[in-house]
Design a protein around this nucleic acid. Sequence first.
DNA 1: AAAGTTGTAATGATTTATATTTCAACTTTC
DNA 2: GAAAGTTGAAATATAAATCATTACAACTTT
Lengths: 145, 145
Amino acid sequence: MQMTSKFTTAVHILTCIDVFGEQMRVTSEFLSGSTGVNAVIIRNVLAQLRSAGIVITRQGSGGARLSKALNDITLYDVYKAVECVDDEGLFHFHENPNARCPVGRNIHKVMDGRLSAVQEAMENELKSITLAEIVEDTKNIISKE
Amino acid sequence: MQMTSKFTTAVHILTCIDVFGEQMRVTSEFLSGSTGVNAVIIRNVLAQLRSAGIVITRQGSGGARLSKALNDITLYDVYKAVECVDDEGLFHFHENPNARCPVGRNIHKVMDGRLSAVQEAMENELKSITLAEIVEDTKNIISKE
DNA sequence: AAAGTTGTAATGATTTATATTTCAACTTTC
DNA sequence: GAAAGTTGAAATATAAATCATTACAACTTT
C-alpha cells in the first residue's frame, strides 16, 4: 500500500509556485515539466488545492498562486486537499466478518477506536510540518548549489 | 488509499486462535468462515504470520497456534508481518521529477526525512497496542452478550 | 489407504492510480 | 475582434494492486 503520489506532487507544486512565482507564470505545463507528472493530473491536483483554499487559479490567464501564507499551510492541509485517505479511514476492514461468530461480530468495534488513534497519530505529525519549512530547506539547498 | 485488509484479517485470525484454540482446531476453513475471507487468502496470511514467528502451523495436522504470548505481539508486529507498507515507505513519490529543475532535483531529499517521521509516528502508535488488549476487550464483550 | 488439511502456484475479476486525448470556456495580446 | 495560450473537465486507456478462485502436491492423522 502506498499513498497516492498526488500528495508529493502537490507539495512539489506548491514549492514551485513559491520559488518561481515571482519571476514567471507557473502554469500546469511548467509544473508538468518540473514534476514529470502529466499536465492534466497537475490541473486536477491544482483543482483540489483550489477547492481547499490553498491556491488560486483562473481559466485563461494561466499561472497558479498561493492563497495563504506558507506558514499557514501544513502537510496535513495538503494531505486532506488531495484526499490521500477517504472517509473509510486509513485501515481497510475485511468486509464480511461473520455475525454468527462471536469474534466476527465484535472485532470491528474492538479495533475501530484503536485504528483511528493510529491514523490520528500520523495526521498529527503531518499537522506539525509546514510548507514554510519545506520551502525554506529547498531554497537553502538551491542557494548552495 | 487504504491499507490491505490482510491487516485486520490477521488480527481477527489471531483473536480467533486465542478465543477458540483451546476447544477446537482453528483451521483455515474455520477462519475463512469467521472472517468471510477466502480460505487461500487466510492461508497466505497465516504463512506470513508464521514467517514472522507469530503463529505455528503444520501441513496436514491442521489448526494454527500462537507461538508467543499475546502480550508480546503488538499491532506493529502484525502490520510488519503482513507487509502493509513495503520498503518504499508509506508515501509514494512521483517518480520522474525533473533534475534540470532546482525544485525537481531537491524536493525528494527535502521531504524524505519528514515523511519518514510521519510514518514512524503511525508505527509507534501501532507498537503501543498489544493483541492482549484486543483479545481482552473482545472476550469482555462476548461474555456480556 | 482414506479423509482432511496446509502450502503454493496460476489465473481471473475488480478496483484504483495515472496517463492520455479531446475540447469548450476563458484571458490576454496583437 | 481574432489568434494564441491556458484552464476545466469529461471520456477513455493503461498499468498495477487487491482479493477471489481453481487446482493440486505434500503432509498428518485415523
